[in-house]
Structures are given as structure tokens and as C-alpha cells.
Write a protein that binds this DNA or RNA. Structure first.
Lengths: 148, 148
DNA sequence: GTGAATCATTCGAGCATTGAACGATATGAG
DNA sequence: CTCATATCGTTCAATGCTCGAATGATTCAC
């Protein structure tokens, strides 16, 4: 019983394949957004801003699951590119509220295009049905994780 | 036309969700194999050895997509745990052939169990059908990448 | 008002990974 | 046979990414 699984049990596992493919996908995406002067985390921050418009850096840190000090660095660079604006919240002047600029939205669009290009490259060997089912499942799976 | 995609285009993307979930899955898996004194890459090396039994460190480096010097460190630690053996290839004494020991196979089994536990935790909100379809799609997708 | 808590920021540290050297071995040309 | 060249494994210093602690400004509770 105990070694019926025996051979290749790890490779049949979801977390293992997710980890491997996730790293691979990130690398391909990173290679494309590099041309825009961005790292994947920059794109993640832009996407988070686009989704829940106007948030304090603290909120963004917990949303993205990274340290607040990392948000500072990312926001610095995005601000230098003119993609985001830092505005002190008048109701609580400790908070820096980040907002997407028009240029930031354009940049995000180009990130999305890069991601879509990487998608088609990555899923070249899948049927259209598989591809859409996969996208849907991953989306719901992602929404379920640490949703609070 | 250009901004029809507009909102949330990145979050609808495969590479983006794969990257996010991949990191999350790796973290959960890492938390569990840590009890075995291993990092995910150790488990990856064990799995690679189990799959294509007996390989030189150079081959393993290209298989796993990491630098040869990293294989040295991983193999050192696994050897210290008695999980792998280093044997000089008699036909080419530059090569160190790595093989799984019986203990290494047991360790790999425990890694697989950890991965399965992480799987069920991760996919708690999915139907059984979704789960198996996802596993299958990821498996085929992984086999298609850099197959050469 | 005064002290505790919260936000953004800076800075040093930790960890994983890489790339450049090096010694040992193998291979091919002359 | 011998020498030049290439390959393997190994060591080591350097890089990049991320975090945690310390700091200053601001707010909140009482």
C-alpha cells in the first residue's frame, strides 16, 4: 500500500507542477516586461492599483503579500516612470495614497499585452478548450486563496 | 479598440495567475518539506533522479534549469542525509553519477506525501472534476515546455 | 496634553543563485 | 606519444531580491 504511489509521485502533484510552471511563466513574463523597464512585481502593483483604485501603501503590501518596505521601492520606481502618483491622504496625513496616472494605465495595458503574448507562447500545445478551462480554474483558485 | 481590454486585463492572464499561484504553492510545499530538512529544490532533484535514474550532475543541472554549482550544493546536502550516492563514472572519471539510495526513495515518498497534503489544502474549494482536469492539463503543459 | 499605536521610509542583513576561476580528466591533431 | 583544447565538478566572490528593525511624522485614546 505504502509504495503503490512509488514512482513519480511528486511529478503527479499539483503543487509541484504549479511551482515549476509558475517559475517558468514568471521568467517568460519577466523577459517581456523587462523591455518596459519593469519587473513582474511592478506589474503586480499596477494591476492591484487598477483593480482596487487608490490605496495606501500599507494596504497594497498586505494585498500583494510583501513587506511594506518593498512597496516603497516599487512605488519609487513607478513614480519615476510617471506611472503612479503619491498623494498624502488629507484625512490621515501618515498615509500615502497611490493612484494610477494615464501613463500608468497605458503601461499596464502594455504589460497585459506582454502577458498575453507569453500566454499564447506558453500554451501553444493546448487546445482552445483546455486553455480557457485552465484560465478559469486558475482564476477561481486564485480568488479562493487567502481571500480575507 | 485599444482599451476595450482596459480593466483587469492582467489578472485575466495565464502567466500572471500561474506566477502568483506558483509562488503560493511553492511556499506551502516549502513549509511542509522544511520538516524533512529540505528545500523544494532538493525535492526537485530527488524527483529528477527518480524519473531518469542515474545522471551526471551536468545533465541534472540542465534538466532542472539551474547552474551546475547549485547541483553541487544540493547533492552535498542530500548526500549528508544519506539520500543520494556519488559514484565516479568509470567510463568518464570526470563525471559524478548521482543515484538514489533506499533512504532517498523513502525521503522522496515523504516529499510526495507533503505535496499531496498541500494539494488538498490548496484545492479545497475546487470540485473533484476541476481538480483532476487541472492536474492533467498542468502535467501536459509541463511536459511540453523546453522538451528538448 | 501625554503616551501608545500606525504609517512611510531608510538601511543593514539574510538567503538563493549565478558566473568566473581552478584542478582533474578526456579527446583529438600532429 | 605529446601537447593543446574542451568538459566535468568544485570553490568562491558577487549579485539581486526580500525582509526586519530602527526612525520620524502623524494620529488616536483617554
Amino acid at each position: 500500500m505504502s509504495d503503490v504511489k512509488g514512482a513519480a509521485a511528486l511529478r503527479a502533484t499539483l503543487v509541484f507542477n504549479l511551482g515549476t510552471l509558475g517559475a517558468l511563466a514568471s521568467d517568460r513574463f519577466a523577459a517581456r516586461v523587462e523591455a518596459l523597464g519593469l519587473k513582474p512585481k511592478h506589474a503586480g502593483l499596477l494591476a492591484a492599483l487598477d483593480a482596487g483604485s487608490a490605496a495606501s501603501q500599507q494596504e497594497l503590501a498586505t494585498r500583494l503579500g510583501v513587506a511594506p518596505s518593498l512597496i516603497v521601492a516599487l512605488a519609487d520606481q513607478l513614480q519615476e516612470l510617471g506611472a503612479v502618483e503619491r498623494v498624502r491622504d488629507p484625512e490621515d496625513r501618515r498615509r500615502q495614497v497611490l493612484t494610477l496616472t494615464a501613463g500608468g494605465r497605458r503601461l499596464l495595458t502594455r504589460c497585459a499585452e506582454a502577458a498575453e503574448a507569453a500566454d499564447t507562447e506558453l500554451t501553444a500545445g493546448l487546445t482552445e478548450a483546455q486553455r480557457t478551462t485552465l484560465a478559469h480554474t486558475l482564476r477561481t483558485l486564485g480568488d479562493q486563496q487567502v481571500p480575507h
